[in-house]
C-alpha cells in the first residue's frame, strides 16, 4: 500500500509502523499535473475572488477604527488611502466616510431573551 500512498496520507496502516506522518516521501506527492480538463474558468476565478472576500471582508466588518487593526489589510489600505487623500487639507472627505460606513456592520439590539427560550432543546432521538 505504501507504494501508492497519497500526498495527504497521515499515520500508519495497520502492521506498517515504519512510515511517519504526512507520508509523502514514499508517496505520489501533490501532483497537480494529472488533473481534469479545464471548464468554466470564469466562474472558477470568480469563486476564488469570493473566497478571498469572505476571508477578508467579513472579519474587517467589525473594525471601526483602522488604527486599531494593523493586521487587517483593508484597515491598512484605508489608512494608506486616507493618508494620500489627507495630504492637501487633512480633512476626510464624504466619499471616504461613506466607504467606511458601508464596510461597517450596523448591529441591532436583540430583544431580551425570554426565560423559557434560553435552553436549547435536546434532540428528541436521544430519548432522555
Amino acid at each position: 500500500m505504501s507504494g501508492d500512498r497519497p500526498w495527504w496520507f497521515s499515520g500508519e496502516t495497520p502492521g506498517d509502523e515504519s512510515t511517519g506522518a504526512h507520508g509523502r516521501a514514499g508517496g505520489g506527492g501533490f501532483s497537480l499535473s494529472s488533473l481534469a480538463s479545464l471548464s468554466s474558468l470564469a466562474s472558477g476565478a470568480q469563486q476564488i475572488v469570493d473566497m478571498a472576500k469572505q476571508a477578508i471582508v467579513v472579519p474587517h466588518a467589525a473594525h471601526d477604527d483602522p488604527d486599531q487593526h494593523g493586521d487587517c489589510i483593508i484597515c491598512r489600505g484605508q489608512l494608506a488611502l486616507g493618508e494620500v487623500r489627507g495630504r492637501p487639507g487633512g480633512a476626510v472627505d464624504d466619499e471616504s466616510q461613506a466607504a467606511k460606513a458601508g464596510a461597517t456592520v450596523q448591529w441591532i439590539d436583540l430583544d431580551p431573551v425570554r426565560p423559557d427560550s434560553g435552553v436549547p432543546e435536546a434532540d428528541p432521538r436521544l430519548g432522555t
Binding site: L32, S33, L41
Partner: peptide, 8 residues
C-alpha cells in the same frame, strides 16, 4: 497545470 490545479 496551475489552471487545472485551481479548478481542482
Amino acid at each position: 497545470a496551475d489552471l487545472a490545479a485551481w479548478q481542482m
